[in-house]
Amino acid sequence: MMENSPSILALDFDGVICDGLIEYFQVAWRAYSGVWHAENKIPPDGLAETFYPLRAVIETGWEMPVLIKALIEGISEEQIYQEWHNISKQILEKDNLKSQDIAKELDSIRDEWINNDLDGWLSLNRFYPGTIEKIRSIASSSVELYIITTKEGRFVKQLLQRWGVELNSELIFGKEVKRPKYEIIRELIKKHNISPGNVWFVEDRLKTLQVVKKLPDLQDVKLFLASWGYNTASEREAAKNDERIKLISLAQFVQDSFAW
């Protein structure tokens, strides 16, 4: 193994490996239409284009239909960027909804779509240039590769299989594990009996990296913010000015780790 390589490379999926913006919007719109009983089943012109950059505020899948609800109600993009947590909470309370129910609706729509039109569903998810080749390269090296994501692990597995990448289920930690990403990183360190400094974690959500950064036992984990993922200009600027978090480009990511 190269000196400047990790023992464990932990990767987020959406926003690091896979660009699912088109699928996100299509599934979110269907879920929104079902939950709020939309009369018009066709999304308004321009809604998807407004939704795409705002994906950066989403932490878990159930928020996506709520984001569409917020946009339909005329809440401004600026408000959403600044106050999304409160806005999403208020929408749920106003309509007496639970996040778990919306999540179930979202997953149910995905399952039905996959069962009825797998090729159509898969075609809406696109891998960032070079990421599939990077995954193959890591998987065949001495580096232990793990995917840690808030997406359902079974969806991740299906998408990778589509492109000929077979990862064992134990290497994919999806939403179903119901544990924070930092806890999973701790478990991997313990499992492999390595020091935290031998773990590299690539994520597109700055807040997730900041949580890891604050934990004393994980202070040596190397943290990377994926600049091509679902984050904002201000978050990327914050990463540039953070000694612990390194902003990495897609061009760097797909190269050998010495280029990071």
Rank of each mutant, 00 (worst) to 15 (best):
W163S: 11
L92H: 10
P43W: 05
D19N: 12
E83Y: 07
E23I: 12
D101C: 11
L97V: 03
P43T: 00
I87H: 05
L118S: 15
V165E: 02
N96Q: 13
I91E: 06
L67Q: 15
I109E: 08
Q219V: 15
F51P: 04
Q158E: 14
D101V: 15
D242L: 01
N168P: 11
I72L: 02
A56G: 03
S108V: 04
H192W: 05
M1E: 03
A38H: 12
E170W: 13
E133R: 03
I58L: 03
I75K: 03
S137C: 12
V211S: 06
K134C: 06
E243S: 10
I147L: 09
A103W: 11
S141H: 02
L106A: 08
N4A: 07
K98A: 09
R110S: 15
R244V: 02
W62K: 00
V254H: 13
A103M: 07
Q100D: 11
N116F: 05
T232Q: 00
P53L: 01
R55H: 11
S227I: 13
Y32H: 09
R186T: 02
S123L: 04
L54N: 04
Y230M: 08
D217T: 14
Y128I: 13
K41D: 14
F253L: 02
E203F: 12
N241V: 01
A70W: 06
Y32L: 01
L54A: 09
S88F: 05
V27F: 15
S99W: 12
L247S: 00
K151W: 02
Q219L: 09
Y52T: 11
A233M: 11
L54E: 04
T131V: 02
W84E: 01
L145C: 09
Q219M: 14
W36C: 10
L225S: 11
L250F: 00
W228L: 02
V16F: 12
N198S: 08
E176I: 14
G153Y: 03
Q158Y: 05
L145S: 03
S234E: 12
R236V: 00
I114V: 07
K246S: 13
L209W: 10
F253C: 13
K181R: 13
L218R: 12
E235T: 03
M64S: 07
E166N: 04
L160F: 03
P6D: 09
I147N: 02
